[in-house]
């Protein structure tokens, strides 16, 4: 299990995260929503281990993240950035194969190639395999990056322990179809026991895809539970500062939020 215990981050005298505790459980999709400036990006950076908190710690299987071997950690946990700054003309296949770097010496090159292909297929971009990354649109790039992180934690006999995927606002710059597909694809990982954590801007996407939703407001977790428990009219209206209505999704039964 990947968990944050009492994370506190202070930058420039301002408390950005205040005693945040969260658990990413196997087979579960956890979404964190919150208004701009709530500390969402700081939270995912701390969870990913790129930012060291001023208090508290992130644990993987009860061992502090920093105590894990970097490559072993990378085989189990991948992070999809908000947007990638890659501006060099790699072939798409090479970008996805970079996801296999932590497996070097443990898998055959042929296996890496077929995993990369399967990951491209899963991300719906198998047809872009031979293209140059820099010639792709923003949405295509994001899906290639998804393929890269999927390839990184692709299940295999050598990679059997619980895997974790962290997504930082993965639906930015994506159209409706791809917003749905990228989250549905992440959701599919839950099927074989992997755990997914996503920072989402849009509460409706969290309500639609997540098993559990946490609300981050001014650096604190103010609510956590199933979408139905957490996404209530009063709470969301107060959170976002506008009058909101929550209705039931006609087919899925999950809550959906509308401006009143």
């Amino acid at each position: 299990m990947l968990e944050a215990r009492g994370l506190t981050v202070i930058r420039g005298g301002k408390t950005i995260l205040d005693d945040v505790s969260l658990q990413m459980r196997p087979g579960e999709f956890l979404a964190v929503i919150g208004p701009n400036g709530a500390g969402k990006t700081t939270l995912i950076s701390a969870l990913a281990g790129t930012l060291s908190p001023d208090a508290g710690e992130v644990y993987l299987d009860n061992v502090p993240l920093a105590a894990h071997d970097a490559a072993a950690l990378a085989r189990r946990r991948a992070v999809l950035p908000q947007q990638s700054e890659l501006s060099f003309g790699f072939d798409v296949m090479d970008v996805v194969l970079m996801g296999r770097s932590p497996h070097i010496g443990r898998t055959e090159e042929e296996e890496d190639v077929s995993i990369a292909q399967a990951a491209l297929d899963a991300a719906g971009v198998a047809h872009l395999c031979e293209r140059q990354y820099t010639t792709l649109s923003g949405g295509e790039r994001q899906r290639v990056q998804l393929a890269r992180v999927l390839a990184q934690i692709w299940p295999s006999r050598a990679n059997e322990r619980t895997r974790y995927l962290l997504l930082d606002e993965p639906t930015n710059n994506l159209d409706l179809t791809h917003q749905y597909h990228i989250l549905a694809r992440a959701r599919a990982l839950n099927g074989d026991g992997a755990s997914v954590f996503a920072i989402l801007h849009e509460p409706n996407l969290a309500a639609f895809h997540a098993d559990r939703v946490a609300i981050l407001d001014r650096g604190r977790i103010v609510a956590e539970g199933t979408p139905r428990e957490v996404l209530t009219e009063e709470r969301l209206s107060a959170l976002y500062g506008i009058d909101l209505r929550v209705l039931e999704h006609p087919a899925r039964g999950c809550p959906q939020i509308f401006v009143a």
């Binding site: 790129t50 950690l73 990378a74 890659l86 790699f90 770097s101």
Partner: peptide, 20 residues
């Protein structure tokens, strides 16, 4: 060389791929 390739993705991304 591989680490430099990963660095082109960004420093955080290279770190997430297990590179020092």
């Amino acid at each position: 060389a591989r680490g430099l390739n990963a660095l082109l993705l960004g420093e955080a991304e290279a770190r997430h791929l297990g590179f020092d």
